[in-house]
Design a protein around this nucleic acid. Structure first.
Length: 212
DNA sequence: GAATTGATGCGCT
DNA sequence: GCGCATCAATTCA
């Protein structure tokens, strides 16, 4: 294959309009996109949607000091501490009412592998960024990134390299929550070996090739 | 491979 | 105090 394999949007910044989508739509749309922090990152292979009217969302009970970024500009980061130990990264979005976000749960590591291994203390490529806490640690994220614009450095959030997501997108119940756990708002790249946990059989949502 | 448990900060009831 | 949008080590198989 030669130049024809290059997708027109490969490497381009994501259109800002997609951050005005509702969290569920954006969560699916981000599968296959590329995320990097200071040049360290990879392909997004797993996401979860959290909506304002969603009992599992931090924004459900309104704005607080911790979750204020969820009510700020769309396309910015919401970073919070989880279980007192880990950091987790969300992409703030909005479908007409503030307080929605997409949790980035797993990456396929592609850039800056040596940095990731050093920060994680483990070299196993399948566990390098497979989970929101692991991902944040590998990319060096912490509270200093909370509220930052994802379209500006040190972030880089772009269309995936190569073709639009060639594999089907999987959908299933979100992980690690007790409220609204029945909502099928977790999305993953089929066939990826870098998911935080496998999806159940039959959890195929779509080809993922449709445009937004 | 699957289940269990401890570590740990902080927002909330 | 309680409950987490978690992880790694440990235990069992």
């Amino acid at each position: 294959m030669t130049a024809e394999t290059a997708h027109a949007g490969a490497g381009d910044r994501l259109p800002p309009a997609i951050f005005a989508l509702d969290a569920v739509t954006l969560a699916r749309r981000l599968i296959g996109a590329t995320l990097a922090v200071d040049g360290v990152g990879g392909r997004i292979v797993e996401t979860e949607a959290y909506r304002r009217d969603d009992a599992a969302s931090h924004s459900f009970r309104g704005k607080t000091p911790r979750n204020r970024a969820m009510f700020g500009p769309v396309g910015h980061a919401y970073v919070y501490r989880s279980y007192g130990i880990h950091w987790c990264l969300n992409v703030v979005c909005d479908a007409g009412e503030p307080g929605s976000a997409v949790l980035i749960r797993a990456l396929e590591p592609l850039f800056g592998l040596d940095h990731m291994v050093q920060r994680r203390g483990l070299a196993d490529p399948r566990r390098l960024c497979a989970g929101p806490g692991r991902l944040a640690q590998a990319l060096g994220l912490d509270l200093s990134h909370d509220g930052l614009d994802l379209s500006r450095l040190p972030f880089r959030l772009t269309e995936g390299d190569g073709a639009p997501v060639p594999m089907p997108i999987l959908v299933g119940a979100r992980i690690g929550i007790s409220k609204a756990a029945e909502q099928p708002w977790r999305f993953g790249l089929a066939g990826s070996r870098h998911l935080s946990r496998p999806f159940a059989k039959g959890e195929i949502a779509s080809s993922g090739s449709e445009t937004v």
